[in-house]
């Protein structure tokens, strides 16, 4: 049901985009007001959420680790999986953010002949890695529409993406990889009953929304064409705060635009905030040095303590009189020569 509702929500957005493409006033609203509103929602919402997270106190080091902790010199420890230094943490976070290290550990439990079998399952890791990297590549490639003159690295990325020069306009491999990886991620949720039960509206909505954006973009590039000059003019106008909707912008383009705006506005309020959350996970971005360093909770109430030394000092005379051995025998004679037993 969640899948159906989110599909319907995305289809409603698609239809709204096409409908807006028909009338002139709706085109104006969609091309001028909606992108700014969505972008403002993205910026403000994103900053607000990150700032909220930044002010959450993390007094203790609470890393969740997957390796031997640093202890005695002759026990080999996991420098990256169980970091004890800042550089260890940086490597661990880099592996997490760039290579999805923790997702690589994903394994699959299944029953076979009444026995539980735990197996490797790299498909989720591989597909999400492919999806995220191609998404980044596609977003960087879109800079060619927003920047004038086009920077050399954007052209280089475009050439790299169309390296095999299949067809005209050249087929982008990122498009193929993105859509296949997302299809896998979607069907992965459908296939496994347990996962289907766990999947929420927002899980499907993000996937369908991104798929719809990819499909409208692919349609515009390979099938029904858009006038790229007016698209670039429109994008540059948006960037320079002089928006204008040219008549040459097709309904499909406006649909693509509306979907992207929906994604931007939805992002700060959804699970897609993992893009900043991954940096701010206290179970990952802290060094596991709780044993070698003392982390004092800064807002601890002052506790009234009475250590043994103070206690001995208080009862020195009585203890000496009763013949009880003292840690510090006699202050006048043995000062600074404390025995430990």
């Amino acid at each position: 049901m969640n899948a159906l509702y989110s599909l319907l929500a995305v289809l409603a957005l698609v239809l709204a985009g096409f409908a807006c493409g028909q009338g002139a006033p709706a085109r104006m609203v969609l091309a001028t007001f909606v992108p700014y509103a969505a972008f403002a929602a993205l910026l403000i919402g994103f900053c607000w959420r990150v700032a909220r997270w930044a002010f959450v106190p993390v007094p203790f080091h609470i890393p969740v680790t997957c390796g031997q902790q640093k202890s005695l010199v002759w026990i080999r420890f996991a420098k990256i999986d169980n970091p004890s230094t800042r550089w260890g943490v940086v490597s661990r976070m880099a592996a997490e953010i760039l290579l999805f290290r923790s997702l690589f550990r994903n394994n699959r439990a299944r029953l076979s002949g009444g026995r539980l079998i735990l197996g490797e399952s790299a498909s989720l890791w591989l597909c999400s890695l492919a999806f995220h990297w191609t998404l980044l590549l596609i977003m960087l490639r879109h800079l060619r529409l927003f920047l004038e003159p086009v920077p050399a690295f954007v052209n280089a990325l475009e050439r790299l993406d169309g390296y095999f020069q299949i067809g005209v306009p050249p087929l982008y491999f990122s498009d193929v990889i993105l859509v296949s990886a997302m299809t896998f991620l979607l069907f992965r949720r459908f296939r496994d009953p347990a996962l289907r039960y766990l999947s929420l509206f927002s899980d499907y909505f993000a996937l369908f929304l991104l798929l719809a954006i990819a499909v409208t973009g692919i349609l515009m590039r390979y099938f029904t064409r858009v006038d790229i000059l007016s698209v670039k003019q429109f994008a540059l106008g948006l960037a320079a705060f002089r928006p204008g909707a040219s008549q040459a912008l097709s309904a499909l383009f406006l649909c693509h635009l509306l979907l992207v705006c929906a994604l931007a506005a939805y992002l700060p309020f959804s699970k897609l905030m993992h893009m900043s959350g991954v940096f701010l996970s206290p179970t990952r971005n802290l060094a596991n040095n709780s044993r070698s360093q003392r982390h004092i909770n800064p807002w601890n109430a002052p506790v009234k303590t009475h250590a043994y030394v103070e206690w001995e000092e208080e009862f020195r005379d009585k203890m000496q009189a009763a013949g009880i051995p003292l840690e510090i025998e006699n202050e006048t004679e043995d000062a600074g020569n404390a025995r430990t037993n």
Partner: peptide, 18 residues
Amino acid sequence: IFAGLAFFVAALTCPAWY
């Protein structure tokens, strides 16, 4: 955290700066 956030905002608004 705020340095990272500032970088993100700058990257997102780069077309306007450009």
